[in-house]
Amino acid sequence: MVGGADAMLEAYRFGVPEGPHREPWTAEYHREAVRVYNESLPSSYQRDVAKLFRDSLTAMAGCSIPADLAADWAIVTAYMREAATSIEDWLVSGESASGRPGPAGAPELTPHNPRVVHWDVLAGLTTQAGTRRMKNACVAVKQYFDAEVPPSLEASERRMLERLISGAAIADVASEMGYSERSMYRELSKLWKKLGVSGRVAGLRKAIAEGLLD
């Protein structure tokens, strides 16, 4: 989606006029965009795109997101939902009318029959501001998914960190948890590696900064 938005923004730079649909994540935009997809891509590819969007929507439905990502999240999910719906409706209408997938019966991709999406035509259906807003939303959501997921701590690891943060000596923590002091150092070494830090100070700082004990 980011690549597609970039291609559309490039089309505006080369003089493609803006179109009537202010936002490219609406049903109105996709009812026209689907005709461009059908001229560009074989029906099997369109069906795969619709399935990919549906699967992505299902996965995203179970996510808990920060409040400042809500607007971007809504744009991305709306785009995928409307694109999938438009493609599915288009393919069904073609099958019922002609008995074959896709109203235009778009040919399959082959090495000798390459197909490309006409991003310039898609750009002509919407506005530059709307396209840029969609790109920014896609980038924000992608960064959210690409962000490092905080490590999940075992109960014993949480206990170690809590006691060390409280100022307890390693020997005392070892005694409380039933370890020898040498074994305690070995367990802590594993914990620092899990947290991606080099030692105790960095490990405790990371645990506090990232709320690993909340």
Rank of each mutant, 00 (worst) to 15 (best):
D72F: 01
L91K: 02
A74E: 12
A97W: 11
S86R: 05
A97R: 14
M80N: 09
L91M: 06
A83N: 01
P101M: 01
A71T: 10
T77H: 02
I75D: 03
A97H: 15
G99P: 11
D68G: 10
L69D: 09
L91S: 07
S86A: 15
D89F: 02
W73L: 04
S93L: 01
P103E: 14
S86Y: 07
E82Q: 05
A83M: 05
A97D: 15
D72P: 05
A78W: 03
T85K: 03
V76C: 03
T85M: 06
R81G: 15
A83P: 00
R100M: 12
A74L: 08
I75T: 10
A67Y: 14
G102W: 00
A106N: 04
A74Y: 06
A74N: 11
S96C: 08
A97V: 10
A70V: 11
P101F: 05
A78P: 07
A74V: 09
E95V: 06
E88K: 04
P101V: 05
S93F: 00
S86P: 10
R100H: 14
S98Y: 15
A71Y: 10
D72Y: 02
P107A: 05
A67R: 15
A78M: 05
W90V: 03
M80S: 10
E88M: 07
L69K: 09
E95D: 09
R81E: 14
S98G: 13
G102K: 00
A83T: 00
G99L: 07
T85H: 04
R81N: 13
A84R: 04
A74H: 11
P107F: 01
P103H: 08
T77W: 00
G99A: 07
G105N: 08
I75F: 02
T77I: 01
D68C: 15
D72A: 15
S96T: 12
R100D: 12
